[in-house]
Design a protein around this nucleic acid. Structure first.
Lengths: 261, 261
DNA sequence: CGCGCCATTGACAGGTGTCAAGAAACGTGG
DNA sequence: CCACGTTTCTTGACACCTGTCAATGGCGCG
């Protein structure tokens, strides 16, 4: 974290998914402006115009929106290498992006020039498509998690998902970069329920907690398990799918890898 | 629905969001192969290889995955003009796609040739980026909905979201193209709870039901309301955001338009 | 008419949000 | 170094909501 304003190459000290490993093309990178953000500082706001694309150089960001009720819903956690800010056509973002910790560095790209570059340089276009696809994968992963019905399952699959993105040297140990409040707003749970789910998973021997942020995964299958022991939920739906659906959609999958659209 | 196998242009008889209105470039369209699917028939399965991109010509599809417990989770509803099937880099989809109703027509594009075309033809590349962005918008919309805590709110925001996508001639009337079971698996609720939420919204005067599929929106703000009357949820979180967050993220938004990344 | 499928409603147990209190971790200043 | 305030995290009690199980009615179709 020494040089803040130079060498905007991605910090790959953290383990990353297979996709985001490759950096942006040099022709795109010359457009970059790099800036450092403090804890809680906003990169952009909910009603700001989408004039830039962004890339996380190092640190962690949260993308969220505030509901009329005051509830904060976190839609995405962004780490080194992740792109964000490419809006859906009209001018507004619709979301806020904030730095979670201190020393978060973000590169920004002028939207118009970046899009023009994507037209002229196939590598840039392909890269942008890759970035949007990894964004889609992250969103689908969160939908998978939000789709679980009970809190320990949500927290469990969240931890597994984080392991694939924020894992330390050995795969089982995980250093959570965000607070319980962030996790709660990401999973649409109350902080108390997140806390209870953590201790529940620990009591069941699925994880081990060292302090509040360090988690060691012990039993993967318990975290991934969405069958509340015996009762396999939604028998009706499953049965209907088996009868009507046909095809290979009936087979259950074991490993959760959010791919494809 | 007369000509099944020719003129694969998008059926725009249904109202669409602003983005998907423009059709695919002609250079991409020459690669298309069009096919018709019956009710419940699979376009591809969970572990099929992602050799094609697809576009919905007419009808409705559901994209989902089956959990080990047997629960079906619907990740996306796809209608005329929507693209799908561009996987996240590796070879598998990870999801199933099925036709919801009868007479669903889908165009498929060989993946390799379509990607090559995206490199050589900027219009195709831009179009693909547009399609991925609208996919992102759909996913973010679902995350917003799944983030709500109580069933009537989920169903209410779901109905509003569907109105923007499946609205009839006048904006308030909505003809649901999917069953209660589909809605339940989309919102991660039980069918009974969806049904109860519908009647609850009707009792409160927010909607009017004519039969089971036709819904008339009466009070938008009730459907969009996520504050359970008085108690504004997560005071802690909101207060913390107000104090720490800073920036324009504190302002609440009224209209739910899922834009931006 | 009988038979699936879909939709609705009721009863009940279990899980989660809320409110409240207390413990632990962290930063700051003395 | 310790005291102190703030923030974060955990745990408990209780009301409410949702999933489950069960029963019923509507609807299309052979």
């Amino acid at each position: 974290m020494a040089s803040y304003f130079h060498i905007p190459s991605t910090d790959t000290s953290q383990a990353k998914g297979a996709l985001g490993a490759v950096g942006p093309p040099a022709s795109l990178e010359v457009l970059a402006t790099v800036r450092r953000y403090e804890r809680g500082q906003a990169i952009y706001g909910q009603d700001d115009s989408a004039e830039f694309w962004y890339r996380v150089v190092s640190g962690l960001l949260r993308r969220f929106s505030i509901r009329p009720s005051g509830r904060r819903q976190i839609v995405d956690f962004l780490q080194a290498g992740d792109f964000f800010g490419f809006a859906g056509g009209d001018e507004l973002h619709g979301f806020c992006v904030e730095a979670v910790g201190i020393g978060t560095v973000v590169a920004s790209y002028p939207r118009g020039r970046a899009e023009a570059l994507a037209d002229s340089d196939p590598r840039v276009g392909r890269f942008i498509r890759q970035m949007t696809l990894s964004a889609i994968n992250r969103l689908q992963g969160q939908i998978r998690i939000l789709g679980r019905t009970r809190a320990p399952e949500k927290v469990g699959s969240f931890l597994l998902d984080m392991t694939t993105r924020f894992a330390g040297v050995d795969g089982a140990r995980l250093l959570l970069p965000m607070s319980r409040y962030d996790i709660a707003d990401y999973l649409s749970l109350s902080v108390e329920t997140v806390s209870r789910a953590m201790t529940d998973l620990q009591d069941r021997g699925a994880i081990m907690l060292a302090g509040t942020r360090q988690v060691t995964i012990v039993l993967h299958d318990v975290l991934d398990d969405d069958s509340g022991d015996e009762p396999l939920a939604s028998r009706d739906t499953a049965a209907r799918t088996l009868l009507l659906g046909g095809g290979p959609c009936t087979a259950a999958r074991s490993s959760p890898s959010g791919r494809g659209v």
